[in-house]
């Protein structure tokens, strides 16, 4: 077990290194002259040179990369271009706000989609099954901002039930926060439901077909017990894996949702940084998103192997 985890962590670290290079490349190499890109075509060459010096982008690329990573390891992410604040002062509170939104979405979507998937599997091939699977996948295929504007028009403008912004007043209680976050969370629910339900459905169908299920039925176990003890336990394994990979997707979806609902999370931070060409903030925030994704896949892998000994004993190579 320890060996398996060590191997996964080592692979994760390699991926993390490649990720940091990739993000560094996009923020520092792709723009060509970073200072010129930030200040625009009409800025004087002196101003461009000064900004490049301040950002360190006049240094050789390797030095820049090493300096930057050293800073990141010490928790220093540089300063934002616009306000000269430390990036970390903006980034951590934003990440926490996004986490709140993501947690609410997951609390709603996980039980809902597992129920939906299992229900579809138990009625495989029926109309109910088709409605859940095709409906779920269509809902997932529709961009989140489309859901967002539709929900806004229906629930905020039409019915007047929920606020059109997610920016709850400072110091509001948990219930008020939930009320403000409900609409944005539901946009994410629509997109996530299809994927998770599909995995839960596939897993359930597979374990309904399995020999151990037939044995359990033949030995006279009540249907309820067969479902709970034999079918669900096995069918939820792949579901756990897909939930973790959706965490990464979620971070991308947040860019759009937080912009529409004016919520100061990491998604909006990325969008602001992108439009203001604030490369230090953009780089740090995107890197953090990547790290969150890597950590959640790592946890999923480990969890998966704890729950399913076959993975760790047999196919640890994958």
């Amino acid at each position: 077990m320890a060996k398996f985890i060590a191997k996964r962590v080592a692979l994760g670290l390699i991926t993390l290194f490649l990720l940091s290079v990739l993000v560094f490349f996009m923020a520092n190499v792709l723009p060509g002259n970073v200072g010129r890109r930030v200040l625009g075509p009409f800025a004087s060459p002196q101003a461009v040179a000064a900004l490049n010096h301040q950002l360190g982008t006049d240094q050789p690329l390797v030095t820049q990369y090493v300096d930057q990573m050293k800073g990141y390891l010490k928790g220093d992410m540089g300063t934002t271009v616009a306000t000269r604040q430390p990036v970390s002062d903006v980034l951590w509170p934003a990440l926490w706000r996004s986490a709140k939104l993501a947690i609410l979405a997951f609390i709603i979507v996980v039980p809902l989609s597992i129920l939906g998937g299992v229900y579809a599997a138990l009625h495989e091939g029926s109309l109910r099954d088709r409605v859940i699977t095709v409906g779920g996948l269509s809902a997932a295929a529709v961009p989140d901002f489309v859901w967002a504007v539709v929900l806004l028009i229906v629930f905020s403008l039409g019915l007047g039930l929920l606020p059109s912004t997610a920016a709850f007043p400072d110091g509001s209680g948990v219930l008020t926060q939930v009320k403000y976050l409900l609409l944005p969370a539901f946009c994410l629910v629509f997109v996530l439901f299809g994927y998770i339900a599909r995995m839960a459905r596939a897993g359930t169908i597979e374990s309904l077909d399995a020999d151990y299920t037939r044995t359990a039925v033949i030995k006279g176990l009540p249907q309820r017990a067969v479902l709970r003890r034999h079918v669900l336990r096995n069918s939820l394994l792949p579901t756990i894996a897909v939930i973790a990979t959706q965490v990464g997707y979620l971070m991308g979806g947040l860019v759009v949702i937080e912009l529409i609902f004016n919520y100061q999370g990491i998604g909006q931070m990325i969008f602001r940084a992108a439009t203001q060409k604030d490369f230090p903030s953009l780089e740090a925030a995107v890197l953090v998103v990547g790290v969150v994704f890597l950590v959640s896949t790592l946890i999923a892998d480990i969890l998966y192997s704890v729950l399913n000994p076959r993975v760790r004993l047999g196919g640890a190579e994958s």
Partner: peptide
């Protein structure tokens, strides 16, 4: 490593 980032984010960074 590329898949660790949502495609939309990679595209935003590159387009900016």
């Amino acid at each position: 490593a590329i898949l660790a980032l949502p495609v939309v984010l990679v595209a935003i960074m590159a387009l900016v």
